[in-house]
Simulated assay, not measured.
Amino acid sequence: MLDNPTGRLDADNELQPDACLRLEDWAGGQSRISEDDYLEGAPALIVAVAASRVSYNLHDKMQVYRRNRVQEYLVWRVLDNAFDWFVLDEGTYVQLSIAASKAQKLINSANSP
């Protein structure tokens, strides 16, 4: 468990995800915990809950995560009542429509009276 959710992806980019999954080296992970308790390198999965600045989450942040080889990126767009799930495939994010549509059903059922 990280005490500090801030991570360093590279020399120019830090992250503060709403949630992330870090794998150990032996499990294929690309990140480590630094001596000053920061996550360094790309976690396997990043989750963002976006109420605003959606274009930032789906464009700028996504490109940084892609360049740093974050394997999966999930964005819950609260105001749009939508869920986007991306998986890195040969250096490009591919949106998982089936997983996203199942997540969308969960979001819709949680928001219904």
Rank of each mutant, 00 (worst) to 15 (best):
M1C: 12
N4C: 06
T6P: 01
T6R: 05
T6M: 13
G7V: 07
R8G: 10
L9C: 02
L9G: 02
A11S: 12
A11I: 06
D12K: 09
N13V: 03
E14K: 12
Q16N: 15
D18A: 12
A19C: 13
C20I: 06
A27D: 06
G28A: 07
G29N: 06
S31N: 07
S31F: 08
L39A: 06
L39E: 12
E40C: 10
E40W: 06
A42L: 08
L45F: 06
I46G: 00
V47P: 01
A48P: 08
V49L: 11
V49I: 13
S52E: 04
R53K: 09
R53D: 13
N57I: 08
H59M: 10
Q63T: 07
R66M: 08
R66E: 04
R66D: 02
N68P: 02
N68S: 01
Y73N: 09
V75L: 03
V78I: 13
D80Y: 10
D80R: 03
D80T: 12
N81K: 14
A82C: 02
A82R: 01
W85Y: 14
L88M: 05
V94S: 09
L96P: 13
I98A: 15
A100Y: 00
K102G: 15
A103H: 01
I107R: 11
I107K: 03
